[in-house]
């Protein structure tokens, strides 16, 4: 490994500079496409007062809910808390300050954060609690001003990545991950398959490696399925 390499040996090495009070984007939809190695490592490090930015903040005790159970998350920005009793309970008791954001606004705010867009107007949320305190502007219909979302760190899982950080995601595991990778100051990626440069065809790169600061080969993936339903059963 040379000094300029983005490649790290494991989660412990790749997450060396995480500290209390960071904002942390975490990719995945429910448990699909979550950075399992990074989450377990953050649980072990015991980092406190995390502002977690993630669609679901885990589910049923798994994913980021591991950090919730250890009371490592003090603030959460997400779109959905259903199916996550740890979050719902800590939200209602005031232990976690939760900001609910409509999912399309959530993803576009993160995209804007990475893409240098300073704000955008959307009809989503007009006339609801989401619009409270926000500028309203009339286009073809009334829209509200939404601002970008950024974070200190993003933890991302991809199926395949090369040593520069070019990534390829499998099926619906892509979701918020490439957006978050663009919006964080330091993006840390774990992959099931770490390949050499050229191991991913340029046409097949879903996220260019310019957005990635660190990458490592993950291990021991559970890849949990939340609700398995099979044909004809």
């Amino acid at each position: 490994m040379n000094n300029n390499s983005k490649v790290f040996a494991n989660a412990a090495e790749a997450l060396f500079d995480l500290t209390d009070g960071i904002s942390l984007m975490s990719g995945g939809f429910g448990l699909c496409g979550i950075a399992e190695n990074c989450i377990n490592q953050i649980a072990e490090m015991g980092i406190q007062r995390i502002h977690a930015i993630s669609n679901n903040i885990g589910n049923s005790g798994r994913g980021l809910a591991i950090l919730l159970k250890q009371h490592q998350i003090s603030q959460a920005t997400c779109s959905y808390v259903g199916g996550n009793p740890d979050l719902e309970q800590q939200m209602l008791s005031g232990q976690v300050d939760v900001t609910l954001v409509p999912q399309g606004t959530f993803s576009e705010r993160i995209r804007a954060g990475g893409m240098g867009i300073r704000g955008f107007y959307t009809p989503t949320g007009y006339g609801t609690l989401v619009a409270e305190g926000k500028e309203v502007r009339e286009f073809d219909r009334p829209c509200i001003l939404e601002l970008p979302l950024k974070a200190d760190f993003a933890i991302i899982k991809a199926q395949r990545g090369d040593t520069y950080g070019n990534l390829w995601f499998k099926e619906t595991a892509r979701n918020f991950s490439p957006l978050m990778a663009m919006a964080a100051t330091t993006t840390i990626v774990e992959v099931e398959e770490l390949v050499e440069l050229g191991g991913i065809q340029p046409e097949d790169v879903h996220l260019p490696g310019i957005f990635v600061q660190r990458i490592f080969q993950g291990a021991n993936y559970r890849n949990d399925i939340e609700i398995p339903i099979y044909a004809d059963e």
């Binding site: 939809f29 699909c32 399309g104 993803s107 892509r174 957006l179 879903h206 044909a231």
Partner: peptide, 27 residues
């Protein structure tokens, strides 16, 4: 496949002509 789910987090299949994309494109 654990990476092939719908928004209800249920396992699904896809048909010919299907496509995958990120959440910003989806919305």
């Amino acid at each position: 496949s654990p990476t092939l789910i719908n928004a209800g987090k249920e396992t699904i299949s896809i048909g010919a002509g299907a496509s995958f994309f990120d959440s910003a494109t989806s919305f």
